[in-house]
Every structure is written in structure tokens, then in C-alpha cells.
Amino acid sequence: MIKSILPIIFIALFISSCEKDEGTTDIYNEDLIFTRSIKINIPSYSYISGKGTQIFVRGDTSYFSPVSDTLSVEPVFAWDTVNVALLHIGIFTEEIQVSQNRIQNSNSMIWAWHSGMESGSDGYVKYSDGISVSLGEYQGSAIPLIPLNKYYWAVWAWNPSGTAIWFSSRQLTFVVEDR
């Protein structure tokens, strides 16, 4: 009996002698800023700008359009609720570049909102809810965007332990309307 049990024990021991490799997943979404993550949908929506005009945002449908949306200097951002603890949205002055599951051009981020902030909520954030960012560091209250400039924005979220990105949206563009 011992002779038949021993090989099973050895096999079990060798199989067991491996550490669990976290963070690998079979998900692949080429359109998303983090390709190995689950998509955060950005629907079409509208909001009333500071000047009292109604601004239409095409959301994900604008991703394949050569023409960018035109938003106000203090835009409003909306997406389908993700219900996670750690969520982040950022506006960049240039196309967001991701490599090895991390944004490489973090210095080009000029505005941010995250789930640790007091105002704003998952799924709907006004520009004034966020803060300005300089060289990748959070600054004070948000500075209005520069008219006629083109910006890039996206939403991403982490797993509960904050070690890996599990959700992200497409990278969308907009142009700030003229004063």
C-alpha cells in the first residue's frame, strides 16, 4: 500500500511547490486603454454647460469617428457605474500611452478625479469635482480647460486590493469650445 501511495504524494508535493501567479487573465480588449481589462461603458449623454447651453457627448460611439466632441471648459463626464472602491478618471493633453499595464505618459495628465474624493460619484463627475494635476502629482482645485485645445480622457478601476487594473474604458477625445 505504501508503494502505491508514495508516488502520489511526490506528484502532489511537486505540483504544490509553485507559487500562485496573480494578475494574469485571458481577457483582451484592444480598444481599451488597458487591454487586459473589462470594459467600462461610456454612454451618450448631455449636460448643461456654464453658459446655459446643452452639450451632447457621444460617448463610446465617438471612438470610431474622426470628429471629436466639443465640450465646455468645465465638462461633465459620465459612464456606466462600476461599483468598485478604487476608480480613477483623467484628462490628458496627448494620447494616453499604456505599456506593461501602466500609463507611461502620466506627466501629460492635467486633471483627475478618483473615488477617494469627497464630491462626485462613480458614473457621474463634474469638472469642478476633480483636481488639477501637474507632472503626475495632484494639485489644488481644477483649472478650467483651454478653449479650442484637444484633450483625451478615460476611466479605469482596480481590483479591491489595488494591485491590478480590472476595468477600463476607451480613450475618448474632445475639443473645448471657443469662448
Binding site: S16, S17, C18, A85, L86, S115, M117
Partner: peptide, 18 residues
């Protein structure tokens, strides 16, 4: 993690044969 949020915990699982 993010400012204003409590610390997060991460588990690491180790299997060791002896």
C-alpha cells in the same frame, strides 16, 4: 491607495511541500 481611501490588503498564497 488613492488619497482619502483606507489602506488595501493584498493576499499572497504560498504552497510549500516538505
Amino acid at each position: 491607495t488613492l488619497p482619502g481611501l483606507p489602506d488595501a490588503e493584498a493576499d499572497s498564497v504560498y504552497l510549500r511541500g516538505f
